[in-house]
Design a protein around this nucleic acid. Structure first.
Lengths: 240, 240
DNA sequence: CCTTCTATTTTGTAGTACAAATAGCGCACA
DNA sequence: TGTGCGCTATTTGTACTACAAAATAGAAGG
């Protein structure tokens, strides 16, 4: 269920490679990349392809190029941290508990509010999508199927808010759940324990009860957070 | 105080131009752009520069290119709506009250939570930044100076959360406040009325009172929201 | 009617040449 | 000795050409 990240284009590969390097901290902010000609040669691509890759990275706020000065990595404040790629790169290079905590904190802020808003404004169509996702979760036989349905559930709730800006935060939730599943997969426990939480959220949204929906979602995320902490403790204990 | 958007590069201009066209809806999602050769000719740039611009747009999720098929505008769901450029383009093309409402809704979710988190975790350094911004607001003589200080205040609070993901949401707040100032500038009223709100937030964060900070910030945003609505009503009345 | 193969179109990559900006050096001059 | 000015070397930016690769649509064949 890991992210496929299938890239057929050459410059796409370069984007991934450089992105990982930068976000992973191998090239520190303020530092300069080698000049284009060199870097292109070193990565065995043409300068053309390299430059297209660099434009992508600069669009995500990671780098900044100026004539004569060269191309340098920008301070992390300027990075588009909410960009799906950037999140993925961080997650790949630095899956520290610290970062996971930050992801969960975001969920705690976003999701209860989104659930409440969805309870107020969701359309019938959107309610249907939520219910379909729930049904898929209930029917899921494998962890993969469950994961997919779970993501669909949370995305459907976001759509229910009628606010595209909210929906764009799905990348954060996706990343958070992704690393969560990665943790819980190791313990191989039954993954269905959170189904009741989902039901409460769904019901509240159906009945248009914003505050009930908010609290149910809040509990769901809090539960997930404490699970993560438990896993982290277990891992630390196993290491010692 | 409008956004400068100074772009010295050619492809940067092309990015702006195409970005505005797409986000403004002139080219609808699902629709194809003219083929590169044609488009390059039409925009009077080389194919090279055009392609670099398109890579930027595809990095922001706006378009998607495939061989033989061409380049098409993606569904809005895939757009990085939280990207500063995308927000600016939306704001430029579609400053409808509808969109402003969505921005405010985001603020209502983010900022009270951020204020609470800052009250818990801010460092002395970060507190100082908040206080400096407040001082600058208090001393501001012009709307421009006030605007700048106000933005600095809200950014400083976000930094206090110690969560880069939160900080990245500053683009949303910046855009929201930007269009707010644009509205309130027309009525030319005194812009300092929200200073007491800011003081309450600052004090609560200094005293490490999360819930007080949350409520104070919530009131600030709510106040701003009702102001926006009043302005909208006034404008509607003036039109009729 | 369906399958398969081919031809054509469009983006992707490579390479060359030159333009433009600018940091840093060196020189002239006070 | 210090200070300012201009030159030059370096690095990115743009243009153009040529060809590679993918994938659609259409033709040919079963």
């Amino acid at each position: 269920m890991v992210k496929p990240v299938v890239v057929r284009n050459l410059h796409g590969q370069v984007v991934q490679e450089l992105g990982r390097l930068i976000v992973g901290g191998e090239i520190a902010p303020g530092e300069n990349l080698p000049r284009e000609e060199l870097l292109a040669e070193r990565m065995k691509v043409s300068r053309t392809a390299l430059r297209e890759a660099m434009k992508v990275l600069s669009a995500k706020g990671l780098i900044e190029s100026r004539q004569k000065t060269g191309t340098r990595v920008r301070k992390t404040v300027y990075w588009n941290q909410l960009d799906a790629d950037v999140l993925a790169w961080r997650c790949a290079s630095m899956p520290t508990d610290d970062f996971v905590e930050k992801l969960v904190e975001m969920r705690e802020v976003i999701e209860p509010a989104a659930a409440a808003a969805a309870a107020r404004r969701r359309t019938g169509e959107q309610m249907l999508r939520i219910e379909e996702a729930y049904a898929a979760m209930a029917a899921a036989a494998s962890l993969d199927a469950w994961t997919e349905a779970d993501l669909a559930f949370h995305e459907a709730v976001l759509h229910g808010t009628h606010n595209e800006l909210m929906v764009s935060l799905f990348s954060v939730i996706e990343t958070a759940l992704g690393s969560y599943f990665q943790l819980s997969a190791s313990s191989a426990g039954d993954f269905r324990y959170s189904l009741p939480h989902h039901k409460k959220v769904m019901d509240a949204i159906r009945r248009r009860q914003p505050e009930v929906a908010r609290e149910a979602m809040q509990k769901m995320v809090a539960d997930s957070r404490s699970n993560i902490r438990r896993h982290a403790r277990d891992r630390a204990a196993a290491k010692a």
